[in-house]
Design a protein around this nucleic acid. Structure first.
Lengths: 214, 214
DNA sequence: TTAGTTTACGGACAATTGTCCGCTGTGTCA
DNA sequence: TGACACAGCGGACAATTGTCCGTAAACTAA
């Protein structure tokens, strides 16, 4: 029988650089089970109990690693969202003076809408679960916190570059996050039948063009 | 014993004009029980089971009238929200040309924020429950639908009065509803410590002043 | 090895949501 | 008054979430 780290000269338990949970085999089994159930049954039809069953572990072992389904979704989406936010951050910080801040803001909004288009449903489920348990708003989720921060920096740059501008970057950033929420995005598509492009245009008119002409 | 509609010459079952549930004594008992439990235990600590117990009725009898706690909250808030929306609608439609549309828009936003300040928590709970069950977004709740409609009309008037304006009233109305959502309001107060006045100012800067200067 | 300590597994359990179904009480007709 | 239909009540029940605790495996030390 092979024991984990049981070999002689067991290497020092080095901190894992990659995604932090790479060590725990249960985590992988859980994520695999969840992925599979999501595909087979749709996002809504999957329960924590079923995930535990499918992963072949007990309820408690599941809850010890993920407090709810939203957290599982978070992790399933994390690679994508991390990459996305990193790229966005990178663009904001490393395209410093090449483009006017307004144009960087516009391009960032377009990128966010692209991301929404791909992942709105999963993001929405994350939000539901996240806000459901504690007394939290969707804006307190790490994803939206970081998005808020990035947009805030952009808006600060906009105000720094623009004369006679009267906005509060912090407030506008939060409002922008709200308008970019998956909830609103899905509503626009579902009820008003708007396309990605229409939604992008509407947001840019409000938050870029609107600020631009003081 | 008095039978409901059991008298001779029973009058044709006329549609009830007042709040529709006025007939059913169970509804009153349920609402009383809910009100009391909400006060005693806080919004979050109350379950459907406890409401049924407190009202002295069975689970099914409760569910036959209210599909979830959100619906109970809706009804508890309905008098207030109906009155509020009626007033808002009235002002929008009957203050036609006395004030410029921009100023009516501003005043309406202020009124909505006042309402949020009073009822944000209840509204938020309604939203949670409403969106939780079916695949619905908060914007599909009747309250927000009607608010959306009112703001849409206002924004149409704004565009009619203003030259060179380039907004899509339907889109802006929905964005405005999003920024006026209880979720965002509570977040602003809780995390950023903003006052009602600061929030009002921020929204008006974005959605009134921003549009005003094309 | 053995004894003692610690970790953490997993099933049982409580609490909640929402549904089902047997039963009772009322109304209708003879 | 009695037979019958039937609307509606309420408790039991399934499904889900989240927690607790007895127990077994793993690690430490002699």
């Amino acid at each position: 029988m092979t024991k984990i780290n049981g070999d002689a000269n067991s290497p020092p338990k080095q901190v894992i650089h990659s995604q932090e949970a790479a060590k725990d085999p249960y985590v992988e089994r859980i994520l695999d089970a969840a992925r599979q159930l999501f595909i087979e049954n749709g996002l809504e039809a999957v329960s924590m109990h079923r995930i535990a069953k499918k992963a072949g572990i007990g309820q408690a072992s599941l809850y010890r690693r993920f407090t709810d389904i939203g957290e599982i979704c978070s992790v399933l989406l994390r690679d994508n969202s991390e990459r996305f936010l990193n790229e966005l951050e990178h663009e904001v910080q490393l395209t410093p003076v090449k483009l006017p801040a307004f144009e960087r803001l516009q391009s960032s909004i377009e990128r966010v809408v692209d991301f929404l288009e791909q992942h709105a449903e999963l993001l929405n489920l994350i939000k539901t679960e996240f806000t459901g348990k504690k007394q939290l708003t969707q804006f307190e989720h790490p994803f939206f916190q970081r998005l808020n921060m990035i947009l805030f920096q952009l808006l600060q740059q906009v105000t720094a570059e623009t004369e006679n501008i009267l906005i509060d970057p912090q407030f506008v950033a939060t409002a922008l996050v709200s308008v970019l929420s998956p909830d609103l995005y899905l509503f626009q598509k579902k009820v008003h039948g708007r396309s990605k492009e229409q939604i992008t245009k509407g947001i840019i008119t409000l938050f870029v063009t609107g600020l631009r002409n003081p």
